[in-house]
Simulated assay, not measured.
Amino acid sequence: MAFVLSLLTALVLVSYGPGGSLGCDLSLNHVLAGRETRNLLKQMRRHSPHFCLQDRKDFAFPQEMVEGGQLQEAQAISVLHEMLQQSLNVFNTTRSSAAWDTTILEQLCTGLGEQLADLDGCLQQVTGEEDSALGRTGPTDAVTTYFKGIHVYLNEKEYSDCAWEIVRLDIRRAFSSSASLQERLRM
């Protein structure tokens, strides 16, 4: 009985720690999974970016919005959720499997899916059923527009190796920018 009581006490204390302070259980594992995502995106490199200079494109990632401290909690979670969902959409296609090492690509997509599952619960907790549109405006729309540009670009470039390399590099930068946002959500 004392063991069960100790365990329950520990669970209560953990739920009021840094991960639970935002009404969302965004664990350290989620932050670590974000680091793994960036690492996998780095490992996917197949060409030198210098080889693909002629294919460079500014997709206008809304970096100021993501890195800035002015996002409300619901907006921050919504932005991260949209980034994960859209990245999964980009890399979870038959065209991407032709461009990348399938083992690394599968690890990336699995990790993105797991992070999305973490954020699904958080997004529902923070925004609630009625207020779900609140977090999905402004910064989230900017992230959606960013990824629409990526899809258009890949299509225009006929999913060439260099187009994929430029997209991989840009999405990796976007995830690096969002790392501070993930850390802030955990605190």
Rank of each mutant, 00 (worst) to 15 (best):
P49D: 12
E130A: 08
F51G: 05
L5Y: 13
N89T: 13
H30C: 12
R45A: 14
A174M: 08
L134P: 07
V14M: 07
T137D: 00
E183Q: 13
S180D: 04
A99I: 04
Q63P: 00
V143Y: 06
L154R: 12
R136E: 15
L32K: 10
F59T: 10
A142K: 02
V66F: 10
E183I: 13
K57E: 11
V143A: 07
L84G: 00
E130P: 04
G20A: 10
L88R: 15
E165G: 01
G149R: 14
L116D: 09
M83H: 00
G20Q: 12
Q124Y: 09
V79N: 09
V12E: 04
D170T: 04
L40Q: 01
R168G: 08
D131E: 11
L84A: 05
W164T: 04
V126E: 10
G138Q: 06
E183A: 05
Q70H: 10
L105N: 09
D141T: 15
A10Q: 13
R184I: 06
N29L: 04
G19H: 05
I104S: 11
D55C: 04
D101N: 15
W100S: 14
A2V: 11
L88K: 14
T9E: 07
E156N: 11
L80R: 09
L5I: 14
H151I: 01
L169S: 08
G69P: 02
A98Q: 06
A142N: 04
S15N: 07
V66Y: 02
K148W: 00
G128N: 06
D120H: 11
L41N: 03
A142H: 02
T145A: 11
T93V: 00
E106T: 15
F91Y: 13
S15T: 01
T110Q: 14
P49A: 01
G138E: 07
T137Q: 15
M44K: 08
V4H: 09
L5R: 13
V143N: 10
K157R: 12
A133F: 08
A98W: 06
D58C: 12
A74M: 05
L88C: 03
T127G: 14
V12D: 12
A133R: 08
K157N: 07
T110R: 13
L134Y: 15
Y153W: 03
H81A: 08
L41F: 01
L71R: 01
F61T: 01
S160I: 03
C109L: 11
C122D: 11
L53H: 06
E82T: 11
L13G: 10
R95C: 03
Q54M: 09
H30R: 06
A117R: 10
G128M: 04
I77Q: 04
E183L: 15
N29F: 13
L134A: 07
H30G: 14
D101Y: 00
L7H: 12
I104A: 07
E130M: 04
C24G: 01
E158M: 05
R46G: 08
R173G: 04
V14A: 12
A133H: 13
R173V: 02
G19I: 11
G149V: 10
F175M: 08
R168N: 05
T137A: 02
